[in-house]
Amino acid sequence: MLAHLREHGEPTDPRDDIDTASLVRRFPRLAAVETRDLTVDGARGPQPARLYRDPSAAPSGRAFVWVHGGAFVGGYLDMPESHWVALELASRGIPVLALDYTKCLGEAHFPVPSDDVLAGWRLALENAHEFFGVGPDAVVLGGASAGGNLAVGVAARLRDGAGTAPAGLVPVYPALHPNSVDPGAPLDPASPIGRISENFAGPGGIRDPYAFPGLGQGEGYPPTLVVVCELDELRPSGEAFAEMVRAAGGAVDVHLEPGAAHGHINEPADPTALPTVEAIVAWIRRLPLG
């Protein structure tokens, strides 16, 4: 699969109802959202990013940097997990900068995609007033699945001196342990999660707490919302991370989406998708600032 992705790129999504026009027909509130394509100077060259703002929405006073998933080898800014989610938040007064990153195809491994997200975070804060209309102290960081891993890993790096920490952290069905199916069990390199984790981590990286923040310390994270799904085999990873942060005295909430499976916010038609987005919006709006 990796060789095919390297040679041919991301396959075309066969769905005919996930383009912007189709999403606006289904969700008319998204029509006023304005987008602007940007680039981030990443670890190995420019990476795409996209800014979302709705000038007609009542400002929330908060903004969001959002990172899609894709098992560290796929995903892109037009997938619903990135594009639709960002449109929904922006339509509710939470401007979004959606980030892409280097995929782990061939020689690229951690920390390259993490460095890309860190660069995107720094760009967001440097331009917070222009991009979002808020100060850098009002910007939240989040991501889904592999993007949730990268968001939490970058938050850990920021905590430990790499820059300004986010106002809040939102990992959605994240993979935060080498064995995210069973965080306390040894990793089977031949299992699907083992192959994904080892490909991401690269040589010598499987025990790095910035690659897999569930292996690190729970202290020092900003207020955090962990979103997990009832039917997701990676649910134990998110729950174990939340418990680690809570045990260290951190402020953490867990939102369990009933009936949802991994990747459900990449399916706008899934009846569990919009409730998750609304839970994220509500949590960000409640987040105390300053």
Rank of each mutant, 00 (worst) to 15 (best):
R36G: 04
I94N: 01
D54V: 00
P236R: 04
V73K: 13
P213S: 09
H177M: 13
A90T: 08
S60M: 06
A165K: 05
D182A: 15
G250L: 01
G69D: 13
L99S: 02
D16M: 08
D78T: 14
E10Y: 08
V85H: 06
D137R: 06
G9T: 09
H177K: 04
V228K: 10
E7I: 05
A43K: 01
P223V: 03
E7M: 12
S180Y: 15
A251N: 15
D37N: 11
L187E: 14
G168P: 05
R44C: 14
P258Y: 06
G42H: 02
L225V: 03
P189K: 07
A3L: 14
D17G: 15
R44T: 13
A63F: 02
E257P: 00
P178E: 07
T164G: 10
T12M: 12
E267A: 12
E230S: 09
T224L: 06
P28W: 14
G120Q: 03
E34L: 09
L105M: 10
G184Q: 12
L141V: 06
G263K: 03
P136H: 12
V245P: 00
A124Q: 01
G184A: 15
E257M: 12
L30N: 05
N199K: 12
P189D: 10
T20S: 14
L234G: 01
V117Q: 04
A201Y: 09
V33A: 08
R26C: 07
L234M: 12
L118D: 02
D137P: 00
R36T: 12
T39I: 11
D13K: 10
H68M: 08
G147M: 03
L176F: 09
R285C: 03
